[in-house]
Design a protein around this nucleic acid. Sequence first.
DNA 1: GCTTTGAGTGAACAAGCGTTCACTGAAAGG
DNA 2: CCTTTCAGTGAACGCTTGTTCACTCAAAGC
Lengths: 203, 203
Amino acid sequence: MTRTRVERKEQTRRAILDAALRLTADTSLVAISLRQVAKEVGIVPTAFYRHFDSVESLGLALVDESFESLRGLLREVWLRSPQFRDYIDGSLPVLADHVRSHRSHYTFVVRERTAGPPLVRAAIRREIELITRELATDVARVPGSDAFSTDHLNLLADLIVSFVVTTAERFIEEPDAEARIMAEARTQLRMLMVGALNWRSPR
Amino acid sequence: MTRTRVERKEQTRRAILDAALRLTADTSLVAISLRQVAKEVGIVPTAFYRHFDSVESLGLALVDESFESLRGLLREVWLRSPQFRDYIDGSLPVLADHVRSHRSHYTFVVRERTAGPPLVRAAIRREIELITRELATDVARVPGSDAFSTDHLNLLADLIVSFVVTTAERFIEEPDAEARIMAEARTQLRMLMVGALNWRSPR
DNA sequence: GCTTTGAGTGAACAAGCGTTCACTGAAAGG
DNA sequence: CCTTTCAGTGAACGCTTGTTCACTCAAAGC
């Protein structure tokens, strides 16, 4: 099939990542052995080392991959956000779509965020913090956000991101209840936004 | 030391639970073997089976134990809540205290909630749902809550509980930043409450 | 006081673990 | 064309895994 050496290598690497995503659908990375991954891929355990030097570093690659497409998505949504209202209400269906079409990555992130190997946990945390910071600068551009001090703006962004993480967890937890979860989350997000719109930071 | 047979058995059971809590400080239950637990306790692997028939059922016992003291605490806090304001603002220090004095249980719950064996995950979820329902009926007694339909009241309770879970995660994640996390969480909880106080359910 | 109960023992098992090492054989490079 | 590179092989290592079984021996029950 694939002729060149780099192509073949990339193809095996891809197969390892996919195998790991398949295995982490059921359990955490910390409960998965190098040999299980190799068997799932269809290679010998030693060959694994040509691509990653441990299951943990495989996990780091999966974190990168998971957040890559997410960040692209967010950038797109935020750039074309016409108004604050749409941007909030419109975000949940976008999230639901993205979770549905990247189920295995989200399953991985949601689980490893609290249970993964230390470096994996740290990497996920860093990515989420990054997104929070981007959201804060984005919200700062919304008219009316001058009722918020910088600190409080960051706290609002953090509150929203936390809520979104919780919502993503639920989409993963109950894939069949997507519509219900989204409807409930929308109401909750509105409650939160009513709070934001009536907020006055002390000065 | 302890003479009677039931006392001795209970003592070993306790030692197993404690050993599991010690081991799950570092990693998830799914990555821990029955033999590791036995070695940590100082008993032979076979003796483990006299108390639990798998690591998973040990996990279920730990879930029970974890939520027992938490529910007692909540009942106490809610019963003596003088006003809505105090009850919200006062809850965070109580949470921080409880997390600090039951660190290993919270570490366990926070991690196993998303990464534990299926039955353990389900048990934790059930307990959290129970607390949410109790909070909803409690909030219903607060004057002014009639602006909320029953559904919206449940959603508000769920929003608060989710937020508290996130906050507990952070206390565990960064034990040294307790004061900072609590201060930030208080502001965020107030934002959320401003939303609640300005909410009008459509009728 | 004699029997029953049952928590804990210790050996044994087949299987799985991460990592090492010397190897093959085809693509890459000069 | 002949050499080098390197992804993937397969055997071997010492250790850990869950579970079984027959066992000991002190407290419990009569």
